[in-house]
Write a protein that binds this DNA or RNA. Structure first.
Lengths: 374, 374
DNA sequence: CCAGGCCTTGAATCCACGA
DNA sequence: CTCGTGGATTCAAGGCCTG
């Protein structure tokens, strides 16, 4: 299945070689969908240590190094232009990236004449935290879905996606875990075979949404072949291009192990519902409590003040509702939601009631009560 | 408060006029943060380039896509360059947009030398559904947070955001309802006063995260003044630029109705980093430890001796508590405050406790009380 | 066999300050 | 400028080990 070169449009094969050179050999208008996970150009300056002084195993591969944004842009324009040529008139493309590169990819797409349908956010269930406390947890990556041109009539399996999402329209933010556990390919030494392997669930949703059975899917940065594996599962054909022979070999072996799913099995794929967690700070942001308000324990012995950032202060201490509750009781831990109360109509009520109200307003309520009227 | 033009750097004012022209009159390095919600309508962008302000019908006929994008890019580069000039060296910028324009804004930022810290996803609780069922529900907008340049040390109130999120570090995806209900400004006819009014909760989180009380926040596309309203609430200063006199008037009246939060409500949790430093040598000087005393690791395997100059010795090595801790573990770095312990009442206690005691005696107690006024 | 605790790990543009 | 050093900093899953 792995081959050095080919002019045929036959699918289900991995081409080992340079991405742009290989693309040039593919015929015009022969592909239904492109999925591309190009190098992100991370520009990592030095090692990053975890708080326990171990080193983060970051992406330091040569294939992710570019001399400048201009060089990266030229590369992007070259492979994207070839992808556009290879696409059928009603074909579409997905690209994925992070803030390092996704804006540049988006501009290249727009300038080449692609027509953006959606940007989609992959919200990671379990992202790597920010170890130094200097930024927000980088908890998502961005995908762009674009058609070959403005007038393309792209495949979009609206009803399938809606069914997949408990009969609600599928939104542009997808909650999916990162690839780990048994799905993560390992090399002979037990280390990760590829530093950026994507989860199959992500590709599953992409292919279910925007291809039909039998469609040809092209992945110009095949890596260890997630696109191919999912395409085979779902009864789609694939063409993969991968420069690194080791990655290509791992992909080939992986795909050989895949058993195509019977079509009826696809209905069992269910999306995770949004998590119902609502932090206390959001209660303040939503103005269910005002900064300066007083919270009390159930016996009215402790009076704490709510701050604008969602912290409490009491007796010279400041912290979250949980920390302050623990301090006020001299304990090591405390559930602030049940410990702290607010006064309403002359009576003390636990702030947990406010969380219920917030969940209702945020559409996260597990027990919908008064939604009907709106 | 609304004024036609000004060269002063004074804050809390709305400048009515063209964004770029007004920016040019602001002094260099005078602003702590920019929040910008620029128009992404390409028609508007091309209008902006025409001094006579004639309206172009059928833009698609006269401008091909590439020209339209190029016009928008020139506009973006112009106002972003002015924002960069106006920012203090450690200043930062937020921009918000959708897939129509956010990629172009991101590239402009990167090409002008801004340094991206995060892209942040505003997940809308109640987005407009996609009526025709041809795409995913467009359920988010994207914000980019960038510093003026790579070496800027931007304000980031990590601990506040963490407390606000129930003691978990804040992620890059934010769940916030769209602006509706009483918060949504209406014009005299009861119609929405501005088509894209942003929710105050969004600005609240932005300003809490990346400004300090008293900071100057500039919004070059002020609209109906959400940035100004939240800045006033949170004890920050604002400068707004708005072309449309009706929007500016609505903003002014709106901001006049805002009551600032009391200073005490703005107190935020202070990080250990921000606390005054007490070196280990001072612990010895204060006789909380005596020269000759023994320090141990938590498992009592390593025993080091305290010297009069605040160094430790162990196994022929001498150095700071940090250096010795690193050597004892064979690591490159170590936090000596948590690694080394002393024996008291038959139990091992980290020497960090002694630092707390020293701070207390020195009147530098770590329990924060009044941080707001700085 | 199961529960619980400990260790590892993931596309990361991740320090501040004084000499 | 650079360089050296003090010392602050992590969340959710999965795997493995122990009781």
């Amino acid at each position: 299945m792995v081959m050095r070169s080919s002019k045929a449009a036959s699918a289900n094969r991995i081409i080992v070689g340079d991405c742009i050179a290989a693309l040039k050999k593919l015929p015009d208008a022969s592909v239904d969908l492109v999925f591309a996970d190009p190098p992100y150009n991370l520009q990592l300056a030095s090692d990053l240590m975890r708080p326990n002084n171990t080193r983060v195993d970051g992406v330091d591969n040569e294939w992710d190094k570019f001399d400048s944004f201009a060089v990266y842009d030229r590369f992007s324009n070259a492979w994207l232009a070839e992808c556009r040529r290879v696409l059928k008139p009603d074909g579409a493309i997905w690209v994925i990236g992070s803030y390092h590169n996704i804006f540049r990819l988006g501009v290249s797409l727009q300038d080449l004449g692609f027509w953006i349908q959606n940007d989609v956010i992959w919200r990671k269930v379990n992202p790597m935290p920010n170890f130094r406390g200097k930024r927000f947890t980088n908890a998502h990556e961005t995908l762009i879905w674009a058609t070959r041109d403005q007038r393309s009539r792209a495949t979009f399996n609206y009803e399938s996606l809606k069914a997949l999402n408990d009969d609600l329209q599928m939104r542009s933010d997808w909650l999916i875990p990162i690839c780990s556990g048994p799905e993560r390919l390992k090399d002979d030494g037990g280390r990760k075979a590829h530093p950026t392997q994507k989860p199959e669930a992500l590709l599953q949703r992409v292919l279910l949404a925007t291809t039909k059975p039998g469609d040809v899917v092209l992945d110009p940065f095949f890596g260890t072949g997630t696109t191919g594996a999912v395409a085979k599962q779902l009864g789609r054909s694939f063409i993969g291009i991968e420069r690194d022979p080791d990655y290509a070999k791992a992909a080939e072996e992986r795909i050989a192990r895949v058993t195509p799913l019977p079509l009826t099995a696809l209905e069992t794929v269910r999306s995770k519902r949004a998590e119902p967690r609502v932090p206390f700070g959001q209660i303040v942001e939503m103005k269910l409590l005002t900064p300066g308000a007083t919270l009390l324990d159930s016996r009215k012995r402790i009076k704490a003040e709510v701050k604008a950032d969602g912290t409490l202060t009491w007796g010279g201490n400041q912290g979250s509702i949980h920390r302050l509750g623990a301090i006020a009781q001299g304990k090591s831990a405390c559930n602030g939601w049940t410990y702290w109360h607010f006064e309403a109509e002359g009576k003390l009520k636990p702030i947990d009631l406010l969380r219920e109200e917030a969940k209702r307003q945020l559409g996260l309520s597990s027990t919908p009560t008064l939604v009907a009227a709106e």
